[in-house]
Design a protein around this nucleic acid. Structure first.
Lengths: 123, 123, 123, 123
DNA sequence: GTGGTCTAGACCACG
DNA sequence: GTGGTCTAGACCACA
């Protein structure tokens, strides 16, 4: 479900967090969907349950997930529309600029990049 | 020259190592080119000189760099690693995943993101 | 009637127990008064009936409440605990500490807070 | 320095977090002050170092503390002035209303409460 | 020596 | 059975 590489220098919890956010952004996980239980995901990924729990907790604080005590963990309905349209656009532009500069450093054209993202988008 | 983000969870040394390898792989650094001194690069990147030295040492062990005592550090003459297709794809995938997780935090869908990038391409 | 905050890190049962004790200590509930049924209170507070039942049982063990089978739960006749000065001070200290930590998160100094409260007093 | 009660049902980490925020709000800790090291505070409070580390990490995420890798943990210069004056006032009013309703439930007058806060304010 | 990450495993709160 | 808290202890990144 989520991909983790124990040999990669990025901390496991950061990889998992990113991976979950990605699944939501690409529609693989939708609002209200239940995530695997902490212990199940730990077994699947062969990491410690505490590491999974830490990620779920962090994403809950960020408003991305919601946990219901004794029930499970779910994708939260986004209360994410705080910033103004203008601010949001500026924010996206900044993120995109940084990203494009990184990919160009890696020798990728903007076409390569868009093509890659489209492949990863769930239809 | 090389990009480092102290807030990124990936260890500084790993970020720097990757950054140098890619500069070489993409031709920004060529065989025989001199790298900045350990201390200069540490100042530029605002990190500890030990961290830079560790990276140079590791890359020397890997045959990517060469140190000539009292002179400086240079890109080694070895017929090394033009980044393979596989490595390049993996790199792009990681950059994209990180980027998408950031935009998701900002409340943007992958569709928003692709649309934005397409607008930038047209210009 | 009793206030419970599901997002507060203190366990629900502890919040409810404290809340009932204070209702008694401050005279809102008097000896012989009937408490809501377990199920009714669970519905009102949107918590599980088991949690309410556990609190009632604990308070019965402590001699604070009394259950008459088939009738209901009542404030016990025991000559109990008018909250001691010490307990009351500790309670106020905890409430204040929690409140100040919240306002600090919002970027308010303790002076801001006191000033605000004084304005409210004058009205 | 910070007070923790292991028998209190509130989680240790939540007690400690509140306690640190309180120390900052009341001026016992000032911008730039260094906090005890994770391990030292753990020893002092007789709790596990991980618990302390968790609190420091949470407060860093909240922008209250700042850690410098390999150096220590410090009170951050507050970047807390995002919300508008109007929003901030509304926020404080809501927090205060909630707090006053709690203290009144406990049988305290608003005068009791202000007096208590003034005692705790550092001159 | 500082904080950060991860593990294994215990016990608790809740449904 | 679900998530939450805490512990003890190992190893790593950084200054």
């Amino acid at each position: 479900m989520f991909q983790i590489d124990a040999n990669h220098p990025t901390p496991l919890y950061a990889q998992l967090e990113r991976s979950i956010r990605f699944a939501i952004a690409t529609g693989k996980l939708r609002i209200g969907d239940q995530l695997p239980t902490v212990r199940q995901l730990a077994v699947d990924l062969r990491i410690n349950a505490n590491t999974v729990a830490k990620v779920y907790a962090e994403l809950e604080r960020a408003g991305v997930l919601e946990t219901r005590r004794g029930v499970g963990t779910f994708v939260s309905a986004r209360p994410n529309e705080a910033a103004s349209r203008r601010d949001r656009e500026r924010h996206l532009r900044e993120l995109a600029e940084h990203f494009i500069s990184e990919t160009q450093t890696g020798g990728f054209s903007i076409d390569d990049v868009i093509e890659h993202l489209e492949k990863r988008r769930r239809k």
